[in-house]
Design a protein around this nucleic acid. Structure first.
Lengths: 202, 202
DNA sequence: AAACCTATTGTACTGAAGGGCAATTTCCTA
DNA sequence: TAGGAAATTGCCCTTCAGTACAATAGGTTT
């Protein structure tokens, strides 16, 4: 049940290249994204969009992404551009003149319900909200902390200093540091600030 | 030049399934992630990890992801879990018992340098990414703080140290401190930790 | 022009944070 | 019962954070 495929580019040569690479000689070809939203295309179609001379408004992009799986292909890829389209709902972003193998790869990936993203972009996505994880007790990390470590972390979340935490738990300041050092290691952070971000940032 | 592949799971049956699906009868098998970091595995190896009974520390995960391409496979997939592993640096996340086709798909995708992510997770990633962007310009902080102070605060929110902020803004560390002192006063807090709590915790 | 604000940087000081090394105690498991 | 984590602490050391005291320079406002 292969859904229909739509190639969107103003360049016939590029459309040919895509069609050849993917073995889709009968794919529907359109000049621009706006046209897509005026067509009665099958829902969940696969749409390859050439980002060369995009003069589309964001609304068109979002709408297209809602109804179809959009593969954004740029002749001058940049992480910023990729992130933009992915935010709009695209399921893939790569160079428009990628090798046939890579194109096929992307094609099959998105057809399988996945998302094709280059490593650099994925890292940026992750780096942006950096290591912020839900502080929920369901976090795989919470389980790794001992009872005392949890208590120290809990106090740390209140913005308390080591000395205060020590008084609070009735232990020495050195012990607080020991617990914290252990927690830092388990969370892969370097100091209380990063730990706090990891816990509260979200 | 196929790099080595490592299967990490406590279940021999699952390892068999993976090996069969991917045609990798000779893949190295390990019981848990921690073992990986004690092995001298080839850099950039492909690592399939069973998330079933993972009692690993985040540091181990991050380290593994730094050296290899980690495919996280869960027997009970959830977006939260997927996001967690992706943030740690995994390049793929899916059901451990995915169909052979899908597994192969993921395998080839990450081997090609891409990232395999389900649609739902990608949307979450993008949603969070987007929501972090307008953090500064619209917030009530902007009114109180000068341009430079905002820049410093923005860096602080990333958990950066004074020295890093200085390099980032190309000013001296002393100036960073000056800006911070000013910000502390405006917000009525005593240190960066409390400032962070005031900013993120409400 | 004088007053004022912002940005910038320096020196030097105090105190907190974090960790290395080492020891003790308790409690639990092979 | 021996071994092994977890908790505890001390001493000492390095680095970082924050501030007091000061100074220079470029703008804006009055």
């Amino acid at each position: 049940m292969s859904n229909s495929v739509i190639l969107i580019t103003a360049s016939p040569a590029l459309a040919d290249y895509w069609a050849d690479s993917l073995g889709l000689q009968d794919a529907l070809r359109l000049a621009d994204l706006a046209a897509l939203n005026h067509h009665a295309v099958a829902a969940d179609s696969l749409v390859l969009v050439d980002l060369a001379q995009q003069n589309v408004v964001e609304q068109d992009i979002v709408q297209a992404c809602r109804h179809c799986r959009v593969l954004a292909l740029s002749s001058q890829p940049s992480d910023a551009e990729g992130l933009y389209w992915l935010q709009c709902g695209a399921v893939g972003y790569a160079h428009a003149m990628s090798t046939g193998d890579l194109l096929l790869q992307m094609f099959e990936t998105v057809a399988a319900g996945g998302t094709w993203v280059g490593r650099s972009i994925m890292q940026q996505l992750c780096a942006r909200f950096g290591s912020r994880l839900p502080a929920t007790p369901t976090s795989p990390l919470a389980a790794k902390l001992s009872e005392r470590e949890l208590a120290v972390v809990e106090a740390l979340r209140q913005g308390k200093a080591n000395k205060e935490i020590a008084r609070l738990l009735d232990i020495s300041e050195r012990t607080v540091k020991a617990h914290l050092t252990s927690v830092f290691q388990k969370f892969g952070v370097e100091d209380r600030l990063q730990l706090l971000l990891k816990l509260t940032g979200g």
